[in-house]
C-alpha cells in the first residue's frame, strides 16, 4: 500500500513539472525507436550500404561510418543492445545492493561490520582500471559486460540503502513492531523495505545511467564484443577510423548524443523524484504556489532535522 501511494503521489506531482515531462518524452522517443529497430531501421547496421564517411543525406539520414555502414541503423540497433544490457545491470546491482544492505540491517553486529567494510573497500577502489582488468581476463560479450559492471557497481547502493535502513530503524513504528514481538525478518521485509521505495527507485534510475556510461567507456577502450553494434562500439569505431580528423562528426555525435540524452532524461526524472522525497527542496515550489515571490534564505520553512 505504502509503495503504491508513493508511486501514485509521485505521478500526480511529477507530471506537473516541466523537467519530468521533457525527460519522459526524450526517454520514450529513444527507447521506443530502439525497440522498433527491426522494423524502422533502413539498412543492416553491420553491412556497408554507402560510401565511406558520407555526409548525412536523404539516403542516409545520419550519414555513414568510416566503413560505409548506415549511422541511423546503427543508432537504432545499437540502442537496443545498449539499453537491455544497461537495464539488466541496473536491476542486478540494485538487487545486490538491497540484499547486502538488508542483510546488514537484519543481522546487525559483526555481520553488519563486515558487510560495511566490504562495501567501503569496493567503493574506494577506482572502478575503471578494475573493470578493465576484469573484462580483459573474461571472454568479451554481453554476459561479461553484465557480470563485470554488476561486481563493480553495487557498492554505493549498499551504503545508501544501509544508512536509509538504519535511520528508519530509529522510527517509532519499527519500535512498535519490535514491541509487538514481530520477527526480525518480518520487520525487514514488511516494515523496512516498502518504506525504502523512493530511495531504491532513484538509485535504480541512477544505475541505468551508470551502466550506459560504463558500458560505453569499456567499449570505447576496445573491451566490448567487436561483433555487436552498440553506442559504445560506434564511438570506438569512430575513434579508430580517425573520424574526428576526417571531419566526420556525425559518426561520433550521433551515438554520443544518444548516450548523453538517455542519461540526461533519466537524470531529469530522478531529480524530480529526489525533490518529492526531500521536503527542503520541495519547499521552494510550495512557497511560490503560496504567493511568496522570492523567499529570503532565512525565510525558508524550517524543516525539522530528523523529520
Amino acid at each position: 500500500m505504502a509503495l503504491y501511494d508513493t508511486l501514485a503521489g509521485a505521478r500526480r506531482k511529477a507530471f506537473g513539472s516541466i523537467p519530468v515531462t521533457v525527460g519522459a518524452v526524450i526517454l520514450v522517443i529513444l527507447v521506443g525507436s530502439s525497440a522498433l529497430a527491426q522494423w524502422i531501421a533502413p539498412y543492416n547496421p553491420k553491412r556497408a550500404t554507402g560510401g565511406i564517411n558520407e555526409f548525412p543525406s536523404l539516403k542516409h539520414l545520419f550519414g555513414t561510418t568510416g566503413q560505409g555502414q548506415d549511422v541511423l541503423s546503427q543508432f537504432l540497433y545499437g540502442g537496443q543492445n545498449t539499453l537491455w544490457i544497461a537495464f539488466t545491470i541496473a536491476v542486478l546491482t540494485t538487487l545486490l545492493a538491497l540484499i547486502v544492505a538488508l542483510t546488514a540491517a537484519y543481522f546487525r553486529g559483526w555481520v553488519d561490520d563486515v558487510l560495511t567494510l566490504v562495501t567501503n573497500v569496493f567503493l574506494v577502489i577506482p572502478s575503471l582500471p578494475l573493470i578493465v582488468v576484469l573484462a580483459a581476463f573474461l571472454p568479451p560479450g554481453p554476459l561479461t559486460m553484465i557480470m563485470v559492471l554488476t561486481i563493480t557497481g553495487w557498492a554505493f547502493g549498499a551504503r545508501l540503502f544501509r544508512s536509509q535502513a538504519l535511520s528508519l530503524r530509529e522510527r517509532e513504528f519499527i519500535a512498535a513492531a519490535e514491541d509487538v514481538g514481530e520477527r526480525r525478518w518480518r520487520i525487514v521485509a514488511i516494515e523496512l523495505l516498502p518504506n525504502m521505495g523512493s530511495v531504491v527507485a532513484a538509485y535504480f534510475v541512477n544505475q541505468v545511467i551508470f551502466a550506459i556510461t560504463a558500458q560505453a567507456s569499456l567499449e570505447f577502450l576496445g573491451l566490448g564484443d567487436g561483433g555487436q553494434v552498440t553506442w559504445g562500439s560506434m564511438l570506438f569505431w569512430a575513434q579508430n577510423t580517425s573520424a574526428l580528423i576526417r571531419g566526420a562528426w556525425w559518426t561520433f555525435v550521433v551515438p554520443g548524443m544518444a548516450i548523453a540524452l538517455t542519461a540526461f532524461s533519466l537524470a531529469l526524472i530522478n531529480n524530480a523524484v529526489d525533490e518529492l522525497g526531500n521536503p527542503r527542496l520541495r519547499a521552494d515550489r510550495l512557497l511560490r504556489r503560496a504567493g511568496v515571490r522570492k523567499p529570503s534564505a532565512s525565510l525558508m520553512t524550517p524543516v525539522k532535522r530528523n523529520a
Partner: peptide, 27 residues
C-alpha cells in the same frame, strides 16, 4: 535562491554531467 542562476544552473550542469567524459572530450 530562485534567481536566474539558480534556475538555469542545475539543468545545464545535469546535461553536461550526462556526457560520458570521452564523448565530451571528442566534441
Amino acid at each position: 535562491r530562485g534567481g536566474l542562476f539558480d534556475k538555469l544552473a542545475p539543468p545545464v550542469l545535469l546535461f553536461l554531467g550526462s556526457f560520458p567524459y570521452f564523448f565530451l572530450a571528442l566534441l
